[in-house]
């Protein structure tokens, strides 16, 4: 035959079923072609490895105070490979490398937990609200509006002051706000998805509403949700850093990047720039990497939105 006939070709193939190329496979391929996003992804992986296994590379822990270094930080606590204090020491004479590892881990966890709450609660809330529509939708969205109109920084600070400054409180506080805008985004998307014919086909077939939401609506939301979740992680990290910067976030001996930057900034006049520099470097690189990965994901998942 002179021309290419895919049907005839397919008929000659063995009868075992073809593997389909899903939209996810396509998205993965597009993402892999995006250089900036891939570099950012590698950076993120390295930072995550640093945060979770970096402690193994040093003999110091972040809690032992070296009294001999107090007061002579600018001369004795300089970053050096010989002393083993790769990033120098902080003003209490603790190893800054171990502190940074600890802080990066906490910041990363805050970001991921906040984002995870947003993905699970926000997506389901938004999808249910949008799908049911009408009065239920109105009521559910007004609740979100009310919660959004409360200045959360203020409430969070009050909570931390009233119930004590615990890590758990911080996670709860961040989790409480993170899902609000996600719920709005998910609802907006759901409104357009629920008018698609495949949803109508499912209704006409007699599929239950909850199954429709989980099988037909949420997977089609996934693209937007994933992108927004990636962009939400740095936002949460900034949020936590700000609170820690104010001195209300994580408490000693625990630390986060925000707390370290705060401490470093207060020592900036004492000739110890590394106390600010190293935490800030990890903070900035991490945020940049998350933003680039988020952008890359958006381009990969929904190429027509570029």
């Amino acid at each position: 035959m002179a021309f290419h006939d895919p049907t005839a070709e397919a008929l000659q193939r063995p009868a075992h079923p073809d593997k389909g190329r899903s939209l996810w496979t396509d998205a993965r391929r597009r993402f892999a072609r995006n250089r900036a996003a891939m570099v950012a992804l590698v950076a993120l992986v390295l930072i995550a490895l640093f945060a979770f296994f970096g402690q193994l590379l040093t003999e110091f822990d972040g809690e032992t105070v070296d009294f001999t270094l107090i007061g002579v930080n600018a001369t004795q606590g300089v970053p050096s490979l010989e002393t083993g204090h790769y990033f120098g020491t902080d003003q209490e004479g603790r190893d800054l490398y171990a502190r940074t590892v600890q802080g990066t881990r906490l910041s990363l966890m805050i970001g991921i937990v906040g984002s995870l709450v947003a993905v699970v609660v926000g997506t389901l809330y938004g999808a249910v609200s949008g799908y049911l529509g009408g009065r239920v939708d109105g009521a559910m969205m007004r609740i979100v509006d009310v919660l959004m109109s409360i200045p959360f920084m203020f409430v969070l600070i009050l909570m931390l002051v009233m119930f004590g400054r615990s890590l758990l409180m911080l996670f709860i506080g961040i989790g409480l706000i993170s899902w609000l805008s996600m719920a709005r985004i998910a609802r907006g998307q759901t409104l357009s998805i629920k008018n698609k014919e495949f949803v109508e086909a499912a209704v006409a077939t007699g599929v239950r509403p909850l199954t429709i939401i989980l099988r037909h609506v949420v997977p089609n939301l996934a693209g937007v949700v994933i992108v927004y979740a990636t962009l939400l992680i740095p936002e949460m990290i900034i949020y936590e850093s700000f609170i820690s910067f104010l001195g209300l976030g994580v408490q000693e001996p625990n630390t986060s990047l925000g707390a370290l930057i705060s401490r470093g900034a207060s020592q900036i006049g004492n000739g110890v720039p590394w106390q600010l520099g190293f935490p800030l470097f990890f903070f900035v690189v991490m945020l940049f990497a998350f933003f680039f990965v988020g952008d890359g994901l958006r381009d990969a998942i929904d190429p027509k939105d570029r």
């Binding site: 389909g20 899903s22 939209l23 698609k196 014919e197 495949f198 109508e200 086909a201 499912a202 006409a204 077939t205 007699g206 239950r208 099988r215 037909h216 997977p219 089609n220 996934a222």
Partner: peptide, 25 residues
């Protein structure tokens, strides 16, 4: 009503829009 729906089925105008893009055929 839901149980009765199995006897009445529908075919739609826009063939692609009537199929969920995230499910296999």
């Amino acid at each position: 009503r839901r149980a009765r729906r199995r006897d009445i089925q529908m075919i739609f105008q826009d063939p692609l829009a009537a199929l969920n893009p995230r499910l296999t055929v």
